[in-house]
Write a protein that binds this DNA or RNA. Structure first.
Lengths: 338, 338
DNA sequence: GTGAAAGCGCTAACAC
DNA sequence: GTGTTAGCGCTTTCAC
């Protein structure tokens, strides 16, 4: 017991050659007699044969079947949802996704990347702020494994899926202006990650266009990109004197909600809060969070579809696919108090 | 470009044999001259050689290095956190975790299981209510791949990690009783999943011991095990006339909080709510959720440690490791109104 | 209809 | 110090 059943074992028991077994089991058994086929199939079930993936893929290097997914942190629902999108497409197209969460550790990211390469993955989806296209290409060696970049990535090249962050920033600003706010701040993360920068640009542009003062040196607040970070920023937000704050993402916004509550600042009566992402939690915090919706699940779906397309036709050009964002108005924003 | 670099290519360029390259690269090169070693290392870097995992593991079937993790849904932070725990230990012990999220689809679960087997994983961690030990053993064929069961599992056998659900139920009941509640209901999922049943038993026992009426046919409310499910149950909860409700898990509790708010029922003034799990969100909902803490991350750590122990010494007995639970008192519970 | 043999990339005895 | 050789489990060409 416990010994792995091989195609040889089956062959022996069936009194046929390994070739026969292999062919029959792979549906290429037209040329064999029905009785032989039946015998082999029966034996496979009986002996619970499972083909050895390693041996198999050692030979059939070509057959698309595994993609790697590298993300920062699985305990964040944001990435979990993204991965679910990936898995959906993978499932449909019969490819196996290998998911690694690298905990934002560059060393680990590289290690996992190598792992995936050595496991002969056919393509990659990478979500990591830290990794540059160069780092990735280097880790990939001179193999030309196609990869798709996602979110928080400074990359200027490479195929990738994105949402329109600039427009997202605009949407947030317009909403706040429509409500009548005159003094707003942007709460973001202290890294010049491209997409947060874009959001700021869009936000700032609309403010300026509407003749509202916005000074990056004082009206952008920085904190950690997490609920804890948002919570910690509460007193800075209050100190800023703003009547509305645009948060870099929903996690920060949700943290901020808590922080403000503890300072006895009412949302949205005293301060309006608008987030970014539209994670499922937004519906369940109090007050329900107004936010800019990003189609996270769809991004997972889209990234995977693009990747799989490229795998099937290697010569598809590098491209950037942008997904639309939109406002989801809930209860954390309102007209400022007079 | 694009062609995979093999150990042979290196050997050729270095004018040595494949053995030499293999040995040197695997740190077993004491017996080779320094110059040879240097040459090989240099070439490896230059040519960006990455060993082929498949070829390698085809031979070294024994060397522990990959474990499979099968969970229901990655977008649930509960499981995400669990997996992070797994990854931590895996990282430390240099094993690679393959994570699959099967979306609660039994067919998919089986498929992924087979995938993992064919990828020659050395051990498994399975979190799935649906899978019985038999199903698993069957999917595993006659291989004796060690596996650890986790959460929501009806299994009566097999090594597994658990928390003390019975005690958790007792804790919840005691807390509510201490606050002075006399009429309580249990909101759970309509599946007789063992651990929810245990929680109920513990809850009920303490109530009865305190001379409080509890009738399973009327005082147990059922709904979906999700935030949506909790929300939907709000009116039933109100209709029950209870002053406190014990929820099967935090997701339900958080949904319930929202549902009650929409019904203009105040928590905890009108109704107290206590959850189960202690997911990180609890701090951020309003009111902050009182709950029974399960060490989710630690469970991931524990499960992995046990698995790895078994892998290193196959003869460890099947065992059940229980992790302690405790009350986390926040703001969603209070004395009932007079 | 069926099987023998080669070989995927690698490691590990065992020679020399 | 270094190379030869066999073989992991599988697929595939080609011969019978």
């Amino acid at each position: 017991m416990g010994k792995k059943v091989t195609i040889r074992d089956i062959a022996k028991r069936a009194n046929v050659s390994v070739t026969t077994v292999s062919q029959v089991l792979n549906g290429k058994g037209n040329r064999f007699s029905k009785s032989t086929c039946d015998k082999v199939f029966k034996l496979r079930d009986e002996m619970q044969y499972v083909p050895d993936f390693h041996a198999r893929s050692l030979i059939m290097q070509g057959s698309v079947s595994t993609i790697g997914v590298l993300i920062p942190d699985l305990s964040e629902p944001f990435f979990g949802t993204f991965v679910e999108g990936v898995q959906k497409v993978a499932r449909e197209q019969n490819v196996i996704p290998l998911v690694f969460s690298a905990n934002r550790d560059p060393k680990l990211e590289k290690e996992y990347l190598q792992q995936m390469v050595s496991r002969a993955i056919d393509g990659l989806i990478i979500a990591s702020a830290r990794m540059t296209t160069d780092t990735i290409k280097q880790a990939l060696g001179n193999l030309d494994i196609p990869f798709i970049l996602f979110d928080r990535n400074n990359a200027q090249e490479g195929t990738r899926v994105q949402t329109d962050d600039f427009h997202g920033g605009q949407i947030a600003a317009q909403h706040l202006i429509d409500l009548g706010h005159k003094k707003m701040v942007y709460l973001s993360v202290d890294k010049d990650t491209e997409n947060f920068q874009h959001r700021l640009s869009g936000f700032e542009k609309v403010l300026k266009d509407n003749g509202i003062n916005f000074d990056e040196s004082t009206d952008v607040l920085y904190s950690e990109l997490s609920r804890e970070g948002g919570e910690a920023a509460a007193k800075d937000v209050v100190a800023s004197g703003a009547t509305a704050v645009f948060c870099g993402n929903d996690d920060m916004a949700i943290g901020l909600l808590k922080g403000l509550r503890e300072l006895d600042v009412r949302v949205p009566e005293d301060i309006s809060v608008i987030g970014y992402d539209d994670i499922s939690l937004d519906e369940y915090v109090y007050p329900r969070l107004t936010t800019v919706h990003q189609p996270i699940y769809d991004l997972g779906v889209g990234a995977t579809e693009i990747l799989l397309d490229r795998l099937n036709d290697k010569d598809v050009d590098e491209k950037v696919e942008k997904f639309p964002v939109h406002l989801v108005e809930r209860e954390s924003t309102a007209r400022p108090a007079k």
